[in-house]
Design a binder for these strands. Structure first.
Lengths: 188, 188
DNA sequence: CTCGGCTAGCTAATAGCAGTAGCTTATTGG
DNA sequence: CCAATAAGCTACTGCTATTAGCTAGCCGAG
């Protein structure tokens, strides 16, 4: 029997493709194994189990999302930066829906690597907010509001929660612009 | 063998309790059956299956949420109404996390009953927005923004996505107030 | 070049889940 | 009081994750 030449990264990569194509809920070791032309238990030589797989997907996705957002906002400030950030977030969530969904599972407390990336993402948002003169506790509130807005739109759209036929992207842009305006008077 | 005296509503009620206590993802026919002191296949005499169960939970929850929001905003307008709406939403999502989560699954197109309730909920939001003089397409955008904000906060908090120890409820209130302010200049 | 160890991938088996088929018996209406 | 209905059961299938233990391909040491 010829070897399949699996590696942990290969397994995770296929799993991500599957999750992005079929949805995070369809991510199953059986399906990944089939994709790789391998028997299901063989995967355990490369990942600890389904939970580990999800964790690794989440870690990769969070890193990519952070990189995308960082790149998008580089050299910009205020409204321009905020729009770029929102756009990058939207773009990533739509290009990699399964990976994005994986991101939401809270990282286990012993995953310092991922916690670090999460901090980096937070720092990008803080940096943008600083351009508005928002810092400290104000920045925490504003960051949460922005995340809720971004995630809310993405999640509700993915769940088919927006019944009306109107263009969701347009609503999203207006929401971001409205948030941008409210940042001007954000400080207590 | 004495009968257990199950009914569809009893099964759904127990399922909801389970979902609210253990989380929507823990909702399993096996667990519901155990709770009712009954063998798993017996449930099929009262519900069509796990999907049907989820659908019924979603329908009930959506109705309750709509009622809560309707009650909360009755006789109020603008800021007062908006705050009451947000508060009722937050309250419901926290009091019934499992049921709330069920709500997000898009209703199947043949479930006119639930679609109707969804419209009722939408109408409540539209009514509040009308108090701000926002109608038509503007109202669609504003409604989506509000829903994204509300759901985003609830979902991210439930997923443990808010790392910082600061009070999430306070951030939520600020977000709602910021949205309230931006509604004043919402019209194009 | 060869042989021995490592390990990738396998088969087999366990356990938990959803769902179906068909039986038994409690309940209830005539 | 009896018969039809249906509640709840056991037994089974099929899918999932996970573990145990085997086999054989590959690679490095000599």
């Amino acid at each position: 029997m010829p070897r399949a030449g699996l590696t942990p990264s290969l397994v995770v990569a296929q799993a991500r493709e599957l999750a992005d194509e079929a949805g995070f809920s369809q991510l199953t070791l059986a399906a990944v194994a089939q994709r790789l032309g391998v028997a299901l238990p063989s995967l355990y030589k490369h990942v600890r189990g389904v939970e580990d797989l999800q964790r690794q997907i989440a870690a990769q996705a969070l890193r990519e999302l952070t990189d995308a957002v960082t790149r998008a906002t580089a050299g910009k400030s205020r409204t321009t930066a905020l729009r770029a950030l929102a756009d990058a977030y939207w773009e990533y969530a739509h290009a990699h829906p399964g990976s994005y969904a994986a991101t939401l599972r809270a990282p286990s407390s012993d995953d310092t690597e991922t916690a670090l990336v999460a901090t980096r993402l937070l720092d990008v948002v803080f940096a943008v907010l600083e351009g508005y003169g928002i810092t400290g506790e104000d920045a925490v509130d504003a960051t949460r509001t922005l995340r809720a807005l971004l995630h809310g739109f993405v999640a509700l759209e993915a769940a088919g929660g927006f019944g009306m036929p109107n263009d969701v992207r347009q609503s999203f842009d207006r929401a971001v612009d409205a948030f941008d305006l409210s940042l001007s008077g954000w400080r207590r």
